[in-house]
């Protein structure tokens, strides 16, 4: 994807009978995108607008009703629980990001620069991406026999004599939550970083080597800067997925840890929809700010 789609207008400029042609082409384009536009309007734009509207509504134990009140936000933004939960969620984001970025970079680097045959490259790349098409819930469940009190990890450590009593923190803990995030989301890093690396002109690396750069200098001065867009796309995925997560935190922490997503889910379970809507709006704004900051650092439009 070498260009933004909007800038690639191959037909407009060479249409012989320009005015009529352009008009009908514009209409044709609109007809072609209308299903996409309509579906996104109904299932994305309207729902988000509904959330924003409902966040100003009132509610009691059994119902919610139209109103214009800031109470939901007031309660949310002055509560110490909110603050603590955001701190906790940010800490998950930071840890998940650091591990997925480091592992994703190493794996992509190996695939892009060390695997020489294209067939192997495609095969190993597919090996890395296949789990993306399988169930996240099953992939979380599959950690139980590893991390449990009588799980494989404890067995091995006990038999090796490294520990005397089984470790309790392996399953249903923050450790398990971050492990699951890394397990589920590293592919979101591998794919875009690999994509960026494959586009690096190999002659740049040769030029750097001819000019006496050490392998480490080539990595930090040539490869890393040129892989940044991929790294940034992966980071946006990981950050937004972890920020909005409620299921991984609930399952892997054994319902012991909180996250912003879980607060929203609890409010929904209690039928406090306006409160849930207000929490959702604050989450959305937080995520958008984080993305805006990340986009400031790297221009990803070049990637598409």
């Amino acid at each position: 994807m070498s260009d933004t789609p909007m800038e690639a207008a191959p037909f407009a400029e060479k249409a012989p009978d320009a005015p009529v042609r352009v008009l009908s082409e514009g209409l044709a384009s609109w007809l072609l995108v209308s299903p996409l536009a309509i579906l996104l309007a109904i299932f994305l734009v309207i729902p988000i607008s509904v959330i924003v509207t409902v966040s100003f509504w009132g509610y009691n134990e059994w119902d919610f009703y139209p109103d214009f009140t800031f109470e939901n936000y007031e309660y949310l933004l002055t509560s110490a629980v909110t603050f603590d939960t955001y701190v906790k969620t940010f800490s998950y984001v930071l840890m998940a990001w650091a591990f997925t970025a480091a592992i994703g970079f190493a794996v992509a680097y190996f695939l892009a620069f060390h695997v020489r045959s294209t067939v192997w490259q495609v095969a190993l790349f597919l090996v890395c991406t296949v789990p993306f098409w399988t169930s996240n819930i099953i992939r979380m469940i599959s950690w139980i026999p590893f991390l449990g009190r009588n799980g494989l990890a404890n067995e091995v450590l006990l038999q090796a004599g490294l520990i005397e009593t089984p470790l309790e923190f392996l399953l249903f803990s923050d450790f398990a939550v971050v492990l699951a995030f890394v397990h589920l989301y590293t592919l979101f890093m591998v794919v875009p970083i690999f994509n960026s690396m494959m586009r690096i002109d190999r002659s740049l690396i040769e030029a750097a080597r001819d000019n006496g750069a050490s392998p480490f200098q080539i990595l930090t001065n040539v490869i890393l800067p040129l892989s940044k867009p991929g790294l940034m796309i992966g980071s946006i995925f990981v950050v937004t997925l972890v920020m909005g997560d409620f299921i991984t935190v609930r399952f892997m922490s054994g319902s012991q840890s909180a996250s912003v997503g879980r607060i929203i889910q609890n409010e929904i379970a209690l039928l406090q929809y306006p409160a849930a809507a207000a929490s959702a709006v604050v989450l959305l704004i937080t995520v958008l700010i984080m993305i805006a900051v990340m986009l400031r650092l790297v221009d990803i439009r070049k990637e598409l």
Binding site: F43, L44, P47, I48, I51, T240, L241, M243, G244, F246, G261, I264, Q265, I268, Y273, A276, A277, A280, L283, L284, V287
Partner: peptide, 8 residues
């Protein structure tokens, strides 16, 4: 956009 927003 976080999935839970679409769901909600």
């Amino acid at each position: 956009i976080p999935s839970i927003l679409v769901s909600l």
